[in-house]
């Protein structure tokens, strides 16, 4: 390379008059996360392909042997499956957060004059958008595999709204997992804990069919009321909705400060 002739960068570029506004900074952080997501087929395609394949397996492979009182298995399965899909696809958020730290991108962002909160807000908004993508795709797959609304579209919107709230909650939870994982592989492994929560809940089978000792866990962990609230909404009832929202609020109140503090000293 020939030696470039340089002039003083501050003279040519000019120093910004002030650091960016928090929302501007958050938007830039979010745009980067979304560009990476959209431009990496492994990110936007793999999650939803897996989601569709597992739904297919539960619906057509295990579904024939599963009997739930009061409805067909597909009508029982799909709402809970959609409500908890972010527990499976959200692992990608933890991996991305851990990867950014390992690659030095987080250091670069932290060395720039932007508020830490903007960093968390931008990251979380974009990751939430990726969760919305999983939720909508999985819901569409549910309809494709035979799920039908029994009680009209208005109630379905309430149920979808709940799923989106859970999407926000687990965005932050997975961010925290990614912030504590030493590397991407570890983040992937740590995210598997979420599978256990989803499986030992009312998502796939009614809690009452489990052995007694397991019911105690299944009933009192957050996923069961979250799934039950979605079922209730679809049937036009509000039972369990307050409990599900209370769990959501509690999880957000615990995990958001952890995320912000952890970014501060990442």
């Amino acid at each position: 390379m020939t030696q470039p002739t340089m002039t003083l960068p501050p003279a040519v570029i000019g120093r910004p008059a002030a650091p960016p506004a928090a929302l501007t900074a958050a938007a830039q952080v979010a745009i980067r996360v979304l560009r990476k997501f959209v431009r990496t087929p492994g990110l936007w395609a793999m999650g939803i392909v897996q989601s569709a394949l597992f739904l297919f397996a539960f619906r057509y492979v295990f579904g024939g042997a599963a009997h739930v009182p009061g409805s067909s298995y597909v009508d029982y399965l799909v709402p809970g499956y959609v409500a908890t899909i972010v527990l499976f696809t959200g692992g990608g958020i933890a991996v991305a957060v851990a990867d950014d730290r390992a690659q030095g991108l987080t250091d670069r962002l932290l060395s720039l004059p932007i508020p830490r909160l903007a960093l968390v807000l931008g990251r979380a908004s974009a990751d939430f958008a990726t969760n919305v993508w999983s939720i909508l795709f999985t819901a569409a797959a549910g309809f494709l595999f035979g799920f039908r609304l029994v009680d009209g579209a208005a109630h379905a919107l309430g149920a979808l709204g709940l799923c989106l709230v859970y999407g926000v909650v687990f965005t932050v939870v997975f961010m925290v997992i990614g912030l504590f994982a030493p590397n991407a592989q570890a983040a992937q492994g740590m995210s598997m804990i979420a599978f256990v929560l989803a499986f030992i809940s009312s998502t796939y089978v009614p809690v009452a069919t489990m052995p007694g000792w397991l019911q105690a866990f299944a009933r009192y962990q957050p996923i069961t009321p979250m799934v039950d609230a979605v079922h209730a909404q679809l049937a036009g009832s509000t039972s369990d909705v307050a409990l599900a929202l209370a769990w959501s609020a509690a999880l957000l109140l615990v995990f958001t400060p952890i995320a912000v503090l952890r970014y501060r000293r990442a």
């Binding site: 650091p19 960016p20 900074a25 830039q28 980067r32 560009r35 990476k36 431009r39 991108l105 932007i114």
Partner: peptide, 22 residues
């Protein structure tokens, strides 16, 4: 580590960082 976003172009990376500088 070269802390640039590999899925973005060089120009996009620089513009993003410039916005984040203010």
């Amino acid at each position: 580590f070269a802390a640039v976003e590999p899925t973005m172009t060089g120009l996009e990376n620089l513009q993003m960082t410039a916005r984040l500088f203010g």
